[in-house]
Amino acid sequence: MKILYPLILLGCLVVFGGNSVEAFYPENGLAVKREVGQEDGPLIIEVELRTNYADGVTTKRSVYETIWSMEDLWSEYADWQLLDQEEGKMVFERNFEDISPASKQNGHFGLTEDGILTIFDGDPADEKVIQTFFQIDVGKLESQRREQLMEGIPVESWYQFEDVIQSFSKIKSEPVQ
């Protein structure tokens, strides 16, 4: 059978032309293209990695993986959830219980004009929204807390992020019915 497969493959190339062949792996449903003559070599696929942070930010990055065995790939991404796969590409996602690097670096809690608690990229006056949360009853805010939100409260850590959300959730506006 090992001799027959390359002959069939070569025959298909002569009849249909081209220099690649599609290989399908039923154990994981992954279809990839390989160059002719590379049937025993590694697969090279694009892997897109999406990380969802607790502050609502999602980051994406793509890497190319050389796969010698699917077991190795699954073990490398064991902490990720497979979202999608298509020819030559797999998309993985994970939820990360922390704030995003962007929020740690430059995020500030503040209020929109409508009184919605928001994380801004930089100064709240610049209105570069990262994530919105809920409307606050501004009338119940102490003047000192209102000033802090107008100036922007830096997002420094996960603990501080949760603390700010929790403290302001006590004065959020009730939805109009």
Rank of each mutant, 00 (worst) to 15 (best):
L117M: 13
A102N: 06
S75A: 14
K172H: 11
S143E: 14
A125E: 06
I45S: 06
E97H: 08
L4V: 10
G152A: 06
I153R: 05
S167L: 01
E46N: 10
Q177N: 08
Q160K: 12
L73A: 09
S143D: 12
S69I: 05
K172A: 04
V155P: 01
D79S: 13
T51P: 04
L43M: 09
W158Q: 09
L82N: 05
G139I: 10
L82G: 03
V14H: 04
D137R: 07
A31D: 03
D84Q: 13
I165Y: 04
K140Q: 15
D79H: 12
R34L: 15
L9F: 10
M90H: 01
Y77S: 14
P124K: 04
R145I: 04
V57A: 07
E35Q: 12
E142L: 09
E156T: 15
W158H: 08
Y53K: 08
L117K: 08
K170F: 10
V32E: 05
G37W: 07
V14A: 09
T118V: 04
G152S: 05
E151R: 15
A23C: 01
A31K: 14
Q38W: 03
L49C: 12
G110F: 03
T118D: 11
Q105W: 01
V47D: 03
T112I: 11
V57E: 13
A54W: 01
S100Y: 08
